[in-house]
Design a protein around this nucleic acid. Structure first.
Length: 269
DNA sequence: AGGGCAACCCGGACGC
DNA sequence: TGCGTCCGGGTTGCCC
């Protein structure tokens, strides 16, 4: 569920909150969330500090002072909260990193994980990911070129992490809506003007969602007004039966390859 | 290469 | 309130 804008928002906020602060204790409530025996994990993290938080696709990389990397993927429904013991959400917490009196809580890690890796191991884990859509070097011409080599359903391509990384089920629908293109159409049947429109809609949607904090429903800390502001701006995702803000038709839900897909039959072609 | 599908996992929502 | 049931959804791997 958390996609590029949500993770980018987390990255920006965490870079303000936890940089250079020593990890004073670590609590593992779910062994499956990490990639080694809990005691080894704890021993390696204790007293380390987080030098920088980086994002790659839907992953966050916590770069540590001991040259290791904590690689986070929230998968479905994972989220984070930063605050004191009293502020702690009343949810099951899988992993907790403490920075003195403040703690970073990892919540909802079912299939999600927090792996402690060397830089080499981390690079290897991420080596199959496609380009970052918001990197300046990912130009419209490069996008058009990779589209020319590909066939298939637009929505399935947009969520394919080998093709472009960071887009998931929500933003793929929002991007198609913005581009006024039906998500079930085939890439190879689009005109070049539609390819260009898809690129511009992709950048516009991801940028504006990132700027206003993504659609993540839980704030990162008490008083966090930024995280989640995009939720009400989603035009089609999870809005079956609601009125399209552009043409007043009703939003439709279909399945594409067992994925939920929302679109407007009135103004997407 | 694209597409379909099962498996992974379990908190939380929902029904009674 | 309490218990049982079921669902969601990104990713991987396997098959056609």
């Amino acid at each position: 569920m958390p996609e590029l804008p949500e993770m980018e928002n987390y990255k920006i906020l965490l870079n303000e909150l936890i940089i250079s602060r020593s990890i004073t204790s670590i609590t593992i409530n779910r062994d499956k969330s990490i990639n080694m025996p809990a005691q080894s994990f704890i021993n390696q993290l204790n007293n380390a500090s987080i030098v920088q938080v980086e994002r790659r696709a839907k992953h966050l990389l916590f770069h540590l002072s001991n040259q290791k990397v904590l690689l986070l993927h929230l998968m479905l429904g994972g989220w984070m909260f930063y605050g004191s013991e009293e502020e702690k959400p009343k949810r099951t917490i899988q992993v907790q990193l403490s920075f003195g009196a403040k703690h970073l809580y990892f919540i909802g890690l079912r299939l999600g994980y927090l792996h402690l890796l060397t830089k080499e191991e981390c690079n290897k884990m991420l080596s199959d990911l496609g380009p970052e859509p918001l990197e300046p070097q990912f130009t419209e011409e490069i996008f058009l070129n990779i589209l020319k080599e590909r066939k298939g359903t637009i929505k399935l391509k947009l969520v394919d992490q080998h093709f472009i990384s960071g887009i998931g089920n929500c933003y793929s629908d929002e991007i198609c809506y913005e581009a006024q293109i039906l998500p079930m159409r085939k890439l190879e049947k689009l005109k070049e003007t539609e390819h260009r429109k898809l690129y511009r809609s992709m950048l516009q949607t991801l940028k504006s969602a990132t700027t206003i904090g993504g659609y993540m429903e839980h704030p990162l800390y008490v008083g966090d007004k930024k995280t989640g502001s995009y939720d009400e701006r989603c035009k089609v995702y999870d809005r079956e039966g609601e009125i399209c803000p552009r043409c007043k038709n009703k939003i439709v839900l279909i399945k594409i390859s067992s994925k939920k897909c929302f679109y407007c039959p009135g103004c997407q072609f």
